[in-house]
């Protein structure tokens, strides 16, 4: 529980720093499709038939917090993080399954095949019967938190380092994967 708080603190710190970097709208690169006055600054284009003007609408998420492809964007990418999982795991497999399917959370099925999903992706490793591999919890936790620790060119998003999932959510996912027989 203590370590949980510590990890949660780390994640909050990382996301907090990212937020602070993007806090002042005037610092946004000029070529961002963003509205500094909006709550979610990111805007998406809307093409209007028979019009010479391009409309912009608010996007559902604020993407200005992360490094972009703009040449004026001088923010660094968060570096790979090595984390230590302290047992017991205390993860909830049922909650982990929900996170694996949720669009706004893990959404693991985009790349990985999981039981009960017909339209699963094939980019990532098969996760069916995951328990058979006998991977230690710590390894699975690190893979989800920041897989760049194992492979610098991994295409798996660093869920922990980038603040997509918090520490307890990753624990739930580890518990879910370790329960797949």
């Amino acid at each position: 529980m203590r370590t949980g708080n510590k990890f949660f603190g780390l994640t909050t710190f990382i996301v907090g720093s990212l937020l602070a970097m993007a806090a002042s709208g005037s610092d946004l690169p000029a070529d961002f499709a963003a509205n500094p006055a909006a709550v979610n600054m990111t805007q998406q284009p809307k093409v209007v038939v028979n019009s010479g003007l391009l409309e912009w609408q608010p996007f559902s998420r604020d993407l200005t917090l992360w490094p972009s492809l703009s040449y004026d964007d001088k923010r660094p990418t968060p570096k790979p993080r090595l984390v230590k999982l302290e047992e017991p795991l205390n993860g909830d497999p049922a909650r982990g399954r929900e996170l694996a399917m949720a669009r706004d959370k893990g959404y693991c099925i985009v790349c990985h095949e999981l039981p009960g999903e017909v339209w699963a992706g094939t980019v990532g490793a098969l996760l069916l019967k995951f328990k058979q591999h006998n991977y230690p919890n710590e390894l699975v936790f690190q893979q989800i938190f920041d897989s760049r620790a194992f492979n610098p060119i991994s295409v798996m998003p660093p869920y922990g380092t980038f603040g997509i999932l918090n520490e307890q959510e990753i624990r739930d996912l580890v518990a879910y994967l370790q329960s797949l027989e």
């Binding site: 070529d31 961002f32 499709a33 998406q44 093409v47 492809l69």
Partner: peptide, 22 residues
């Protein structure tokens, strides 16, 4: 360029304006 903006949004990256240098 609007396709690039869509690609960026799909991969949760801040889109840029059409005609931008990148």
């Amino acid at each position: 360029h609007l396709r690039f903006a869509e690609c960026n949004l799909d991969t949760r990256t801040q889109p840029l304006l059409p005609g931008s240098r990148p």
